[in-house]
Design a protein around this nucleic acid. Structure first.
Lengths: 336, 336
DNA sequence: CATATATGTTAAATCGTTTTAGCAAGCGTG
DNA sequence: CACGCTTGCTAAAACGATTTAACATATATG
């Protein structure tokens, strides 16, 4: 631990005031409006001394006494996924605006790890949690929420739980891009999805089915469910899809999209001439990789901003009368 | 912050002993060998009570008094890169073995952000730092190391700095895979690299040059340096490479490999028939994407294990006589 | 002028733990 | 039996901040 060496006491002595006063000045500086009344010139003097001595408040001591760490914990499902990496970045920026920091954890879509990570974060003393649930994490989330920790769910919901959340309108988004594939001439669209039981995946499948149903009874549907992180089945799946006369794919995530598209290229086909493709999430590789692709651009910055607003509102409303639960559903933007 | 509510005091009262004793029992439990002498049955009783009351030590208070957080800070250059994502995971596991936790930050290859992130970590009170330097981060690292914080560099070195590090033998690895391309019949090999000034990138370029030089004067070299995160130049580069009769590519990272390979496929060519490809780092997409690819598999688990060993050794040797600086160079494994 | 109110400041308690210094009992030794 | 050494335990002082309660002084109010 870095020895901060210069403490509030040193400043007090140097400026000829009490430590209390120094503390007042410091916390007034951090928060917006002055809560404590401090003489203007005294405040200036204290701040000058603090500056000169390069005072850095000791967050640990602060946390111990005040019970607030000004840190919120974030658990995403896979930090290596560009979608979540971007969310992580944006959350960090948002938190900064409120004078907060963020600590991350990754569940790797594993409910046990999810629980462990949440425990570690709580033990480190975060003021609130922003969680991306994974399949099987319901109990852990219920427990945390039940114990009164301020929590907001992100990207995925857990039905039947009294907790705020920010998600995309996945069903509508899926419907729109599927519809778009049809408009561009696709006759036989497969959806490639995950077998994980996660709200957003299920919603996307529904949207796909909605669109095909609307199109008419002559259109067939097929949802291929891939097991997370075991992608060897893709080549054989692609072969079967081709044999069934599939001419377009709708993918539930950017990872799936890349996998299927690389399979398409590997077999010597082109996008969008041979196969049309639609999917969720942007990926930096699209730019150069698949110019003709249709994708749902999730408003990641809004995800982060809304989630942070919700958690801040909850944190700032004392333990007494809490701010009400809010479930925010964001509208998708479609590209391509 | 989660109210842990039940404290050492409660246990002391319940068990009829002093808080000191409870503290002794608790910390003996955590560390390996008993440092304090405590009666065996008393210890058992205290632990029973602690268990029954579901005591969770308050890390904040611990940190404040002891000056140790049992947390080490890690700054990688891009958490969204699978290579670093895996390193992050492995570091977490390693730390766990020592009873430590890990907090992450990402510099996004930006030296200002690097400095900010390091400051935040130090301010949170980490006991040590594991850093992946980025171009321009030298000053920040020098400052941190100079101020006595235990530090280990990972994946990239900063020449002329007294600090432990764990890196791959990048030059040798690059030489070997370039050689392998030649052995498989490549006559004109381009290297695609980053323009960033980073030790490992420079070393890889040297290895490439070494191999071509060894091959004989009739072989030409070309190093194409791409600016990080601006990949629009790749199509035009690929065109020019094709015109120059290039028949193989050696890429400095997995990201570059994917970009160039997708360009190859997009133009209707195949790997390895039309172009042979070698690169650094594994990527999950390779499996399905480029079976014929040659790549350097970096021993990520060893990176993590060695780095954690080094930082632990430094942390545990008190501020008095520090363990000596160690620069560990790991051997690459070649696949394909 | 007396009383109330606002303003500027501080002493001391507190957060939950670790750590220092030391006490008391038991035991072997010469 | 007196001495030192070990064993088992504790009181009290940190750690560095925040927060409570209160004390002056100045200003306003009736």
């Amino acid at each position: 631990m870095a020895k901060s060496s210069v403490t509030i006491k040193d400043i007090a002595k140097e400026a000829g005031v009490s430590t209390t006063l120094v503390s007042f000045v410091m916390s007034n500086q951090v928060a917006g409006e002055p809560v404590y009344r401090v003489g203007e010139d005294t405040a200036r003097r204290v701040m000058e001394v603090a500056e000169r001595l390069q005072y850095k408040p000791n967050n640990t001591a602060r946390a111990l006494r005040s019970g607030k760490t000004l840190t919120i914990g974030v658990v995403v499902s896979d930090i290596a996924n560009p979608f979540f990496a971007e969310i992580a970045r944006d959350l960090e920026d948002q938190a900064y605006k409120y004078g907060y920091n963020v600590i991350f954890g990754s569940s790797d879509e594993n409910p046990e790890k999810f629980g462990r990570v949440v425990d570690v974060l709580l033990n480190k003393g975060v003021d609130g949690l922003i969680l991306v649930p994974c399949a099987g994490s319901e109990d852990a989330i219920r427990k945390v929420v039940g114990s009164g920790v301020d929590t907001v769910l992100l990207d995925r919901e857990v039905p039947g739980l009294q907790v705020s959340s920010v998600v995309l309108d996945n069903r509508e988004a899926a419907r729109v891009i599927t519809r778009k594939l049809l408009d561009r001439g696709a006759r036989r669209i497969d959806m490639v999805s995950y077998s994980m039981n996660i709200s957003n995946t299920r919603d996307r499948e529904q949207g796909y089915l909605d669109a095909i149903k609307e199109a008419g009874p002559e259109f067939e549907t097929h949802i291929e469910r891939i097991t997370h992180n075991s992608y060897d089945s893709i080549p054989s799946y692609f072969r079967s899809a081709r044999e069934r006369g599939v001419d377009a794919f709708m993918m539930a995530t950017n990872t799936l999209a890349l996998l299927v598209m690389s399979e398409i290229y590997k077999n010597g086909y082109h996008i969008p001439d041979d196969f049309k493709v639609a999917c969720f999430d942007r990926n930096p590789l699209y730019d150069i990789y698949a110019p003709g692709i249709i994708f749902v651009r999730q408003p990641v910055d809004s995800f982060a901003a809304r989630a942070m607003e919700l958690i801040m509102a909850r944190i700032r409303s004392g333990p007494g009368r809490k701010v009400p639960i809010e479930q925010i559903v964001l509208s998708p933007e479609i590209s391509g």
